[in-house]
Simulated assay, not measured.
Amino acid sequence: MFLFRSNLLAAAAKVGSVAITIGLGSAPNQSARAETLPGQPGAPYQSMPSLAPIGTRVDHYLPIPKEDVTPAIDPKKGYRSQQLGRGLYMVTDNGYQSMFLVYETGVVVVDAPPGYSAHIRQAIAEVTDRPITHVVYSHAHVDHIGGVNDLGGHPIIIAQEETLRLLERAKDPRRPVPTVTFKDHYTLKVGSQVLDLSYPGSSPHEPGNIFIYAPEQKVLMVVDVIFPGWMPWRRFALAKDIPGYFDQVAYIDTLPFETLVGGHVNRVGTHSDVRTQLEFMNDLKTAAAAALKSTPPGEEMEAEDRPNLWAIYDNYIDRVVVKCVNAVTPKWQSRLAGYDVFIWDQCYAMEQSLRID
């Protein structure tokens, strides 16, 4: 069962097929307070959403929408491959995604997530016996490139110059520094195949996070920004710049791709997926803005806590987020896979950005 922040009476409720437990205070705050010690859970906020908040344990989550269910991974293989065009393939474990491009005398690999990197050569061998000659880093995060040593050989490694800077600082043997770097744009032409690598000047996710475009195949790979059919990873995929994240999602929709590889989740995407994510983000922004405007600081607090400035803002922010979650849930909980997992994170990040960005 979901465990909400309360040690008072519990009552069962339902959200679709998901059972939850909500603490119900039958007495005013003062009575509830008398039963708890400072810093301990008390009565829930007014209008507490039925979805488990951060820090609570869940017995099961909302089901994945049918349209986002994809073929299961064969546990004996640990991956599946999908052809995206002439010589271009995605490799995935239904959680992470990488690509490889076959040309006349070799293979280019884009990212090597460590969860299945030991199988990438096996996936390539199903298509060709040509060697891996180049590796492209989408960005520096270890969860996307930390398995590059499993590829073997001595490929040319290409990345944006900010990725070089971050990897030199990290000094991580799992992530060899790139041998070729660029600032704004780099065209990798190998045989009759082309990859256009570009850096839009900054990245809301991490410095150096690039766009990888296969023009013949009309495939765009942008990692940790678009999550086709799914709730984005928590707090807008840990975006350092949330207004910039909004701008980048809108910009991606203007590009001439037909297939999008986002680096995560269990399927590729389309322009429709980009627009759906942007629609959700804009609804979230509207809901958080309305909640900020309609929520006075200091309500639902005991008088003795009011001198505690941090407590006032903790209470205020929590109540803003409660309103935000309640506002967007009816429309979106059945449309985005994993909605209930990260909706609280997204509302917290959105209200914070609206207050200070």
Rank of each mutant, 00 (worst) to 15 (best):
I20D: 04
Q46K: 11
G42Q: 08
A43V: 15
P38V: 04
Q40S: 11
Q40P: 00
N29E: 15
A27H: 04
V18W: 03
P41A: 02
A34M: 14
P49L: 04
S31D: 15
S47A: 14
G39K: 04
P44I: 04
R33K: 12
P41V: 01
G39Y: 09
Q40L: 13
V18P: 01
M48I: 02
L24Q: 01
Q40D: 14
Y45V: 06
M48C: 06
Q30H: 06
G23L: 01
A43S: 11
G23F: 01
G23S: 01
Y45H: 11
S17P: 00
Q46V: 11
P38Y: 08
A43C: 07
A27Y: 05
Q30S: 12
G42S: 10
Y45T: 09
T36K: 14
P28Q: 04
P49N: 02
A43D: 10
P38E: 09
S17I: 05
Q30I: 11
A32S: 14
N29G: 13
S26R: 08
S47N: 15
L24V: 13
P44Q: 04
S31A: 14
N29K: 15
A32C: 14
T36H: 08
P28D: 04
A32H: 10
I22K: 08
P41S: 01
P28F: 02
G25T: 02
S31Y: 14
S17G: 06
G25H: 01
P41I: 03
Q30A: 12
T36N: 09
Q30L: 12
S50G: 15
R33G: 05
A32Q: 13
L24Y: 06
S26Q: 08
S50W: 00
A19D: 11
S31L: 15
S17F: 08
I20G: 10
A27Q: 08
V18D: 05
A34F: 13
P44Y: 01
L24C: 00
T21G: 14
V18F: 00
L37V: 08
E35A: 14
A32W: 08
I22F: 03
Q40H: 11
L24I: 14
Q30N: 06
Q46D: 13
P28H: 02
S50R: 09
P38D: 09
I22D: 00
S47E: 13
A32P: 00
Q40R: 07
S17C: 03
P49E: 07
T21R: 15
E35P: 00
S50E: 03
G25A: 04
I20P: 00
I20E: 09
I20Q: 09
A43T: 13
P44E: 07
A27T: 03
L37C: 09
A43L: 10
E35V: 11
P44R: 02
P49K: 01
S26F: 14
G42Y: 05
T21N: 13
A32L: 13
P28M: 04
A19W: 14
A43Q: 13
A43I: 15
G39I: 07
V18G: 03
G39W: 11
S26P: 00
I20M: 07
Q40G: 06
L37W: 10
G25W: 03
N29H: 10
Y45R: 11
S47I: 00
A27V: 06
P41H: 02
A19M: 12
S47W: 00
V18R: 07
